[in-house]
Write a protein that binds this DNA or RNA. Structure first.
Lengths: 212, 212
DNA sequence: GTTCTACCAGACTCAGAAGTCTAGTTCGAT
DNA sequence: ATCGAACTAGACTTCTGAGTCTGGTAGAAC
């Protein structure tokens, strides 16, 4: 007699609540979001939400932390592809750039950044939650890869951290305007073009031999 | 007997309300912000706010529009400094970059971007209000200047719009992380360093003679 | 079978805030 | 002097939403 929703058993209600909470918080903002709406969206009673998380504020923090963890995982998986294979470095960079842009432009990524911007004044600790779990580490990991490429002679980056920052900047710098803060959908072809342009400029600045 | 506040007469209550509204909206977010708080901050009765703007939503739009206008003016004034004088182009670019960063990192700028991010889902038209008045036009104006510099032989930018986008990206790309979305204060020296690094990379990519 | 735990549906309390209304005040113009 | 427009202080209505509580159900452990 159990409905399709409850069929999975009693486990991972928690995860369902976190997902629904992030969705609703992102859509409506913290203040407008109703806990009853979140509960309904998660297919759960309001009291269950409170028994799991205590109050709305805690729910926000946990939902954001979970979302940041998820984003970090995806980003690191992309950065891991940046290895010195037999292929052309330019192609590899363009591919990694494109995939990073896909991560950056995912709905959940925009939602996370918007939500963070929105609530940073009320909950300053959200910054640390997200930064320790996502933003900072990606640049760091990227810097590691660039440093390796430098050592191997494929790049010339005296300051790998700066190079990583600028690579990410060239990729994502124009996306806020292009994507209307996530309200406009961007075609893959445009992401490829942006990545190509970014790699173009990046390699002009950091190619090992100052040729051409 | 009139207090110092009311001494200026009945005029420009409107502007005081707009300023206070932006301040409070930015600090608390649209939903949390109380119209009575805004009125108090503006040194005005709540009824006066309603007689001027009708409702809270209109007040938000007008406050954001006014703030965007202000930001645009400041940014354009900076871009106007990008001319081909006798000086070194690098110095000029670094100066313009530094000043653009100062605009970007002004409290009101962070507040505007955060507020826009926060309310973009509830009020999608805010995007057009701000974009038509600010973000888009700055890159445009910058592209014009870069095109001129190209024609004069000081730069090599086949696509001035792309070059302008990338210049801005190199400048501002790392500021979100550095400034903690505007919660951390950034020393001038760091802004100068970021500008120098950006111009470095920019010139490597777009200098007219592919020398060195 | 009993019991314990997690859950559900919904009623309930309480606080805060939008927007309205009233009565009185100040200022400029005629 | 007086009239009208803009303003003030604050009471008032109404609604929304956080968090609590109650009574009842389902499944798992024993």
């Amino acid at each position: 007699m159990s409905g399709a929703v409850a069929a999975r058993g009693r486990i991972d209600k928690r995860q369902a609540i976190l997902d629904a909470a992030f969705l609703v918080f992102a859509r409506e903002g913290y203040a407008r979001a109703g806990v009853d709406v979140i509960a309904a969206e998660a297919g759960v009673a309001k009291a269950t939400v409170y028994s799991h998380f205590g109050d709305k504020e805690t729910l926000l923090r946990e939902a954001i932390a979970a979302s940041a963890d998820q984003a970090l995982t995806q980003n690191l998986a992309v950065v891991d592809r940046l290895t010195v294979r037999g292929d052309d470095l330019r192609d590899t960079l363009e591919d990694v750039g494109f995939r990073l842009l896909q991560c950056y432009c995912a709905d959940r990524s925009w939602a996370l950044r918007r939500l963070l911007s929105a609530e940073i004044n009320q909950f300053p600790d959200l910054l640390d939650i997200v930064h320790s779990r996502a933003a900072g580490r990606v640049t760091e990991a990227l810097a590691d890869r660039l440093a390796r490429l430098s050592v191997a002679g494929h790049l010339h980056t005296p300051d790998p951290v700066l190079a990583a920052e600028q690579f990410v900047a060239l990729l994502t710098g124009s996306m806020d305007a292009r994507a209307g803060l996530g309200t406009r959908r961007i075609p893959h072809a445009e992401l490829r073009a942006v990545s190509r342009a970014a790699v173009d400029t990046f390699l002009k600045a950091f190619a090992p031999t100052p040729r051409q």
